[in-house]
Amino acid sequence: MLGAGLYSATLAVPRFEDVAGRTEAVPAGRTVRIGMSDVATVRTMTAKIADILDELGGGHARPMAAAFLVHTVGPYLRADGSEAARKAIRAAASDLVYLTGWMAMYEREHGTGQQYYLRALTLAADAEDHLTYSRTLRGMALQASNLGHGNKALALADSAAEAAPAAGPRLVAFLRGQQAHGAAMVKDRRQAFSRLRETEAALSRAEGRNDTVGGYDRSAFEFHVSHVKWELGDRAGSVQALRRSNRYRPDGERQGRVHGTGLLATRLLAMRHVEESCEVWDDFLEDYAGVASARGDEHFATLENGLRPYRRLPVVRALSDRARAVGRRKTA
């Protein structure tokens, strides 16, 4: 479905009109004929995989997504069917490809994640699905920010906002929050806080159930607040926002909680609040033991290495003993 490669920070920001129509050359006429029930199958599987991701981590969910893409979605995309069904299957596929790219990014396989994102853009454009297109660009902005490419992160976030002129308030909040993070990375304080205000205002207007894929809620907003404040030097404010984010996070989002508590403990440690950091690391270990996540593994390594200068403290010795036990269970 896609070729292996390295992440490219110089990739031009894709435009909707530039990628639309790229899947028209995919040959139809295969033995399978698709209908709207097949579209529903893809949507249902995407939701189930997203649930597994939240509960058990990308290490378990992504292989399932990749296998389903190869063995089921790929043949659907090559199948005959009405124009409405073919457009709908591309839209459904773009959601799943976006989610798979997000998982690859989260598992630190950035070149693969970028290729998934590009494929999701093509499918969304062919389906005339501006919302998934803009959401995918936002995912690419997040990836760029994770890798420290501030200017690229802001450019992608701005492009994502421009690509969704008819977005509802929840997606608007999603996009403005990413713009705020990108602006903070390039030290544009005025724009960053202006975007945060727009994010909070949009989120206050959001109604109904949060999206299964690419959703945005109060926890995500506070996470963006935390990033903005950290980038702009307000460490205490960043930690307070991250604590709020962790309190707002739904109980079922265990992978997100692993990242949130790991990041909070890391930031507390960077501020030399060692005992507070140990308390949060203890919460981190509770969830990390049951989640397969490369980012969780990264936080675990930070726990082991970051606490070594403080190993004479009783609280650090106790935490280190527990961490070793968790590590042995995960590698057994």
Rank of each mutant, 00 (worst) to 15 (best):
N246R: 03
A292K: 15
V326T: 12
Y288T: 00
L285P: 09
R43S: 03
D282W: 04
K229I: 02
D283S: 10
H130P: 00
F300V: 06
G101V: 06
E275A: 15
E55D: 12
V26L: 13
N151Y: 02
H224I: 15
D188T: 10
H181M: 04
L307I: 10
G21M: 11
H299F: 02
L123K: 13
A270Q: 11
A183P: 01
L268D: 03
H273C: 02
A4L: 13
L303Y: 05
E304G: 00
A236P: 00
H181E: 10
T199Q: 13
G208D: 11
I34W: 06
D129F: 00
H299C: 05
A66G: 05
D251W: 04
S134Y: 02
L303C: 04
Y216D: 05
P14Y: 13
V26R: 08
S194Q: 13
L264K: 09
R78E: 13
R176L: 09
T72C: 00
K187N: 10
D18G: 00
V258P: 01
R329L: 03
D158P: 01
L263E: 01
A28Y: 09
A289W: 01
A325Y: 02
F284G: 03
D188Y: 13
A9I: 07
D54P: 00
F221L: 14
A241N: 08
L123G: 11
R244A: 07
D283N: 02
L77G: 04
S320G: 15
G58F: 05
L285S: 09
G5Y: 14
T23Q: 08
